[in-house]
Amino acid sequence: MKIAVIDGQGGGIGRVIVEKLRKDLPEDIEIMALGTNALAAAQMIKAGANEGASGESAVIFNTPKVDLIVGTINIIMPNSMLGEFTATMAEAVLRSSAQKIILPLTRSRVKIVGTREEPLPHLVEAAANEIKKILEVGTGV
């Protein structure tokens, strides 16, 4: 299985996600860091991603090639992350046949009703648990 973790700006959220996935998932799971910029990609690579790339072209090129995409709600919102995440990038994520695990964190003026505000570690834990369930179903465990 190949998982893309997408983040922008300083890559802090992506770094936390990659660290958790690397710790909790089997070693044969490939994690790809897709950053809106080189700093974000580098932070995720330092956290344990197998490979990484940055920029609009990297997101557009790689999202169709992965099995799972993980990131905040910003990765499906055009012009989020202070404009770093373009409409074309958001469309590429949404068009990908990969399953998406979305964390309801945003600094934009979007409020997701029906969700509780949780700290990042709790959301990442929930995302990791969902990915483990997906892996169990996919492997017949």
Rank of each mutant, 00 (worst) to 15 (best):
K20A: 13
M81P: 03
I102C: 03
V124H: 04
I31E: 11
N50Q: 00
I131M: 01
I131Q: 01
D67W: 07
I76E: 05
A126K: 15
N62K: 11
A49T: 08
E125W: 01
A53M: 11
E51G: 02
L68C: 13
L82K: 14
G52A: 07
V16T: 14
E30R: 14
V124D: 04
I131E: 03
M77F: 06
E19A: 10
P64C: 09
N50K: 11
K46C: 02
F85K: 03
A87V: 00
T139N: 13
K23Q: 15
D28R: 10
G14Y: 04
A98V: 06
A47H: 06
A53E: 14
S80Y: 09
K20Y: 00
P121W: 05
I75N: 02
I131Y: 03
E125Y: 06
E30H: 10
P104K: 04
I13G: 00
M44N: 03
G48W: 08
T106E: 01
P119H: 09
G11I: 07
E117Y: 06
P104D: 04
A42G: 13
L39I: 15
I29W: 05
L25S: 03
E27Q: 13
D24G: 01
S108Q: 14
P104T: 02
I75C: 02
E84Y: 12
G52H: 09
R95N: 15
I60N: 01
I75V: 11
I131K: 05
R95G: 00
K20N: 07
A126H: 12
E19H: 08
G138Q: 14
S80C: 06
A128Y: 02
L120D: 07
L39K: 13
E91K: 15
A33M: 05
T72Y: 02
A49G: 10
T63L: 10
G83E: 12
S97N: 15
R95H: 12
M77P: 00
G55H: 10
V66D: 09
V113I: 11
A33W: 08
V141L: 09
V141W: 05
L25H: 02
E136V: 07
G140C: 08
S57V: 09
S97G: 15
G11R: 06
V93D: 01
G71T: 04
A47W: 08
I6F: 12
S57Y: 11
M32R: 12
L135Y: 09
N37A: 04
A47E: 06
L25Y: 05
V5C: 01
A42K: 14
P64T: 09
E51W: 13
R95F: 08
P64S: 09
E84C: 10
V137I: 14
R109K: 14
L120V: 15
K111Y: 07
A127R: 08
R95M: 12
V110L: 13
E117N: 12
L94Q: 12
R109S: 12
T36H: 02
T86C: 06
L120Q: 09
I60H: 04
I17R: 07
L25D: 07
A49R: 11
N37Q: 11
E56T: 07
A42W: 08
